[in-house]
Design a protein around this nucleic acid. Structure first.
Lengths: 342, 342
DNA sequence: ACCGTTAAAGTTACCGATTACTTAAATGTC
DNA sequence: GACATTTAAGTAATCGGTAACTTTAACGGT
């Protein structure tokens, strides 16, 4: 007969050693109350008995979970995958656990995940919001609950929250200026939804660059939509079918550029000869494109660690920590598109 | 002054309505004990007061978590990303929560994640093991603890565990037979570590195909290593530097094939003319390769749901559920490599 | 009008830890 | 050598829920 006992508890260890469970609890947590010899003995015994702490019990009584919730819109995306990896590594180093959830660009799912995380009593939340997030109120609620929250890359428009983003306006500006310097007059934009920073700010940088160079913004050359490959494909096809193609398109994300790339190929237009492209962000796929796209480089390496650092600051200093917005500057990486016209 | 109260509890709701917390608890869970009118009132009040359940407390007392742990080796990989998405969707539909962790092909991290999940008292674990997992003992421990565990894609060799895999031997066999039929005599294999099913079985299928067709297996044409792009690159370079290149290489994963692709390009060899390639699995990158690789298609769509279904069966039937191994058949998808020699 | 049922709540105990406070013995101080 | 301080443990209360059992009142059948 195997034991009926469901699980080994502190009490079981305590009984075996004729001490109290509090002593065991302290010993396992290296509390100074306990002498080295006893602590060693207790740890050895716990190990031998196959003790596995019960986080639910611990969390309940300690009123904290050492857990941070992370929500991203998509996972099959090297940008987010890389950041997730780095956040995991940071958490590992700081003895935090990560609860990862994917909203799949769905506002409802995003909300459900947020609620689950609140119910789990995560110590903090790191999020990159979905395309058309309608959860501003939920974020405010979370804030009022005192749960630290840090946005990264995709944020909501509200100065009361901390965030780590790349400098989208500046990045877009650089890209479009480059297009202008390359000799293009007719510069279109396949942009993202305007309710979200990356859509709005990249469009803002685009407009700013045109304005500064006194180039007329042709609204017919601007389309807003989502951030995925199919969105780029559709946008291109729309411009193409209406014969509204400019000379070059500045796209809001790499997947969107990829959609444009595919669509252009499909209708038989050559990049960069017939239609040129410069985009925001990249992916490992870029290596295989012909031509390899020029793009605004997001310093992906920094985003994860900086975001994590920020959430830790929030957690450690509690309410008195003022929201902080970190912006990371971008660089232009020139490949085989948007090259100077001779 | 804002309230000092940390959080709203069942008791708070109960007090306001002059009932007991048990009544509130039951009402919120739609327990038949509670009349519709009371239940409705309680729910409304809970909502108004901003009640958020405390999962730790619930888990502790209910002795289950409705949470399933998922561990994958890598995340920036469309194969795993897709499966993760589908598992999330299944969980969503069945009211389970998912705890996702990434081992990053590191056995130590894998172990740590497993332990964390045990401490969280997940109701079950779904895992695709890392490259050189040394956690067989941990898996046995988990089994003896009575925590259901289902492997997918990458499993350990042990009949006592359930798993969902594709038919690796058959898939590899098909690919290599195709190479043979295409007229190749000298067929190499860039394989994966042999301690893990996908490495072992794909190699087995390769050997079997050669044997059946009485083709000599030249050990100099076989290299074992990891499953990533750099592994493929290194393997190719090793063969190349020793001038041991066969006519065609059957690679264990798509990333490995990609590494080969890059390496071949780098040394100026043309695929498929100078060196041909056929691989196991694919990725969205394949669309952009020239030539587009022929590959053994893994029915990615089925793996996630089938795995989830299996873990649910385990959870529901407890100890008495016998391990079940599900194998999914593969298809060969022919593109521009491994084409019949004329 | 009586007794067994049922409906709708209430009582009590417990889940497995942690925290804050207390105790007892050992050590140190002048 | 008496009293203050440390050190190393123990005691009691609590965290927020849920499960199992009990109570109370209303209902129904004969």
């Amino acid at each position: 007969m195997s034991k009926k006992k469901t699980q080994i508890t502190l009490q079981d260890i305590a009984d075996k050693l004729n001490v109290t469970k509090v002593t065991v609890s302290k010993a396992l947590r290296n509390h100074p109350d306990i002498s080295d010899s006893t602590a060693k003995l207790i740890k050895k015994t716990a190990d031998k008995m196959g003790y596995i702490p019960n986080f639910a019990a611990r969390n309940l009584s300690a009123k904290k979970t050492s857990t941070i919730g992370v929500i991203v819109p998509v996972i099959a995306n090297s940008f987010f995958a890389q950041i997730i990896d780095s956040i995991y590594n940071c958490a590992f180093d700081s003895d935090y656990d990560i609860i990862l959830a994917v909203s799949q660009e769905d506002s409802e799912k995003e909300k459900k995940h947020l609620e689950t995380m609140l119910a789990m009593r995560v110590d903090g939340i790191i999020i990159s919001v979905c395309e058309k997030s309608e959860n501003h109120n939920t974020f405010l609620k979370i804030k009022s609950l005192g749960v630290p929250i840090v946005f990264f890359d995709r944020t909501i428009e509200d100065d009361n929250f901390s965030s780590v983003t790349i400098n989208n306006v500046q990045g877009a500006y650089k890209a479009v200026v480059k297009a202008i310097e390359s000799g293009y007059k007719s510069i279109g934009h396949i942009g993202g939804w305007q309710n979200i920073n990356i859509g709005r700010d990249r469009y803002a940088g685009y407009k700013e660059a045109l304005r500064k160079h006194k180039i007329h913004l042709n609204k017919k050359h601007v389309i807003f939509g989502g951030f995925g490959e199919d969105d780029g494909y559709k946008a291109f096809m729309e411009l193409y079918s209406k014969q509204n193609l400019p000379d070059i398109l500045f796209t809001v994300t790499f997947p969107v550029a990829l959609g444009v790339y595919n669509a252009a190929k499909e209708v038989g237009l050559k990049i960069p000869k017939d239609i040129d492209v410069i985009t925001f962000g990249q992916s490992s796929i870029n290596r295989f494109l012909k031509p390899k796209l020029s793009y605004v480089d997001l310093q992906t390496n920094d985003i994860g660690p900086k975001t994590f650092e920020l959430i830790l600051e929030h957690i450690r200093s509690g309410k008195k920590f003022a929201p902080k917005k970190i912006e990371i500057d971008t660089d232009l990486v020139m490949n085989e598109t948007c090259i100077k016209k001779i």
